[in-house]
Amino acid sequence: MILTELSSRKPAIDWSWHLRLVAFLGPAALYALVFILVPYANLLIYSFWKTDNYTIVRDFNLGNFARVFESPVYLSVIANSLLVASIVTICAVVLGYALALYVAFFTGMRRKFLYFLMVIPLWTSFLLRAFIWRLILGREGVINSGLAWFGFTDEPLSVLLFNRFSVCVALTYVFIPFVAIPVYAALEKIPPATLEASMDLGASPFYTLRRIILPLSLPGIIPGAIFTFCLSFGDFVAPSLLGGPSGIMISSVIINQFGSAFDWPFGSALAIFVIVVVGIAVALARLLERRYE
């Protein structure tokens, strides 16, 4: 067997590898380019245009963004959206975490059953889970008719529905599973020996919770919290159904620009603003994640 000068040959570029990559990723990448990146870029372009007498003028200007920050009306809507998103995130994280911890304490079939119960709400209609609260908090809802029936009140309470409170309740209700599921997944990954070691070293259960379980479950908390914040910030179902005049959020204003107000460029600018807020939140989360890695 003669194999002289074999090694002088340069290996060719592995075309088959590139070909396979394109075959697998290509269709989805193309789809993402055309239907994710191009639309967002398009939105950005629109946000620099303006309308004049209900026609869009393709004239680059920053007027839309100036309008957002100069008008007290829009600023208050943005502030309200941020406030609602923050309240909902805090409540959903606390309650979702407690729920995940509760389920993680069980073993065997009971745990499987409880996990199942935790997941079901995620699979049920968002719309349905929001409008239920009209049934509960409304003027003739369960709480008011219940209170009247028991004779506690003569007049229905009106503070329950069509305000910021009802929006926060409904959104918290919707987003608890969004936190509970990733937290549960993170809790499941903690080796029991870690906790035994902590107890063995004399730590109380609460100290263990604070110093061991909580830090180790951050990889679940952070994505859960981010989802909740981003999606509740831009939600339009809950404020439309339950918000009333004091519960207006940014998405309702955006929808309005594309509907009756017919100011697409301004609506686009507001949408870009939402994207920027989401981007900042995600960036902060990644920063946090890296710190705790």
């Binding site: 239907f35 994710i36 639309p39 939105l43 999606l231 939600d235 339009f236 955006i254 609506g267 995600v282």
Partner: peptide, 16 residues
């Protein structure tokens, strides 16, 4: 699109 509220995704496609 998982992080960005549906309304924004819907809008961007609407505009396109």
């Amino acid at each position: 699109p998982l992080m960005i509220p549906g309304i924004i995704t819907g809008l961007s496609i609407l505009l396109l």
